[in-house]
Design a protein around this nucleic acid. Structure first.
Lengths: 199, 199
DNA sequence: TTCAATAGACTGACCAGTCAGTTTATGACT
DNA sequence: AGTCATAAACTGACTGGTCAGTCTATTGAA
């Protein structure tokens, strides 16, 4: 009576099921990317039925969007945790990029899904917001570092754009070329930046 | 007798038709991206029949690959034309990036197709080769600039990665956020680099 | 008894690619 | 010049398969 898992299933509260679906979705998207992972794959991976998926999420897109939001929130939280008042600001700045690189590279499929998502019209707003948030955070860190005299005075908007671009470019090159080792290049990039940016 | 275009059609030499198909493909992919543009769209846009498309190209993928190659060749040619012996090398270096940004931004749909392409497994090799070629070209320019004393000595591999990344990052941010003006940031990026990299 | 939650067979649309057949160009041999 | 064989180019209806999303029925919980 307690567990006849084969036929039917206990009704679970919203959040439990959503988490379960999201976990399966992460698995599927990580493996095959957004397009290649079908809703039937999610059905298999979650162990739920299609009807259930569509009860909890409006569409495939919404599933991915939820996943994306979770990823973004988690990323920003980890990044801001670096800014503990102890660490030099330049390390916080560089650390944000390094974090992004390490996270996305750890899940190659997720990187692919991310890229596909860049091309997905419905995702633009979300991504625009994310990039803005990154730029704002970076600009704030840069301004503070400049005020403290930790860095040369330079247009912080441009430098933040450059930093985001550098991380992203490294990720793209790495995602496409297995012989390209992204973190081997990273210290050199920092060195180049420090040569110019750090007082 | 010369032109009864309605019913049947003169047989044209390979290259003429391929060019015609490629032009239609460019139009379609630019408008909707790779996935969203169907072969039937190409049929409509080219004015040929489906059989004809598949006579001249093996698959949709091959059509895009041909388009990609043409774009790449054209890009490298334009870039290398900048290196005329007159121009300071730093301008050639920066010019390559600026060229890429201007070209891809001029065709927003093509930018989208490009991004989709990044996620397309069959395209990886092609892109890996492209990135390598970019890095090699940049490294060579950087080395020469350093030898001539136009720039500070820095690891050229890291700096070339950084430059490619910066351009790419700007493109991505611009493709996603209509309020982000990519070339407004470009001079600042160069300034930041010059601050550090140019002697 | 009521309804949120679950199930999974089903639908309708789409799409890359195929195929059997047609048309045009070529050129060889009268 | 006329005829005909052969190949190259072209046509569009069709196929097989996929996939996001729907529908109706059923179950569990309160």
């Amino acid at each position: 009576m307690t567990s006849d898992s084969s036929r039917t299933r206990a009704h679970e509260p919203r959040e439990v099921r959503r988490a379960q679906i999201l976990e399966a979705a992460f698995q599927c998207f990580s493996e095959s990317g957004y397009h290649a992972a079908s809703m039937n794959d999610l059905v298999r991976a979650s162990g739920l039925s299609k009807g259930s998926l569509y009860w909890h999420f409006e569409s495939k897109e919404q599933v991915f969007l939820a996943l994306f939001d979770a990823f973004a929130d988690d990323y920003f939280a980890s990044w801001q945790a670096l800014d503990d008042g102890q660490r030099p600001l330049f390390e916080v700045i560089a650390g944000g990029n390094e974090l992004a690189i390490r996270r996305l590279l750890a899940q190659p499929g997720m990187m692919r899904a991310w890229i596909e998502f860049l091309a997905h019209p419905a995702a633009r707003d979300r991504l625009a917001v994310l990039y803005r948030r990154c730029r704002e955070l970076l600009e704030d860190l840069l301004e503070r570092a400049m005020e403290r005299g930790e860095m040369k005075r330079l247009p912080s908007a441009a430098v933040s754009t450059l930093l985001i671009g550098a991380a992203e470019g490294i990720l793209l090159q790495a995602s496409v070329d297995p012989e390209f080792d992204p973190l081997a290049h990273w210290p050199g990039v920092l060195l180049a930046l420090e040569g110019g940016l750090v007082a």
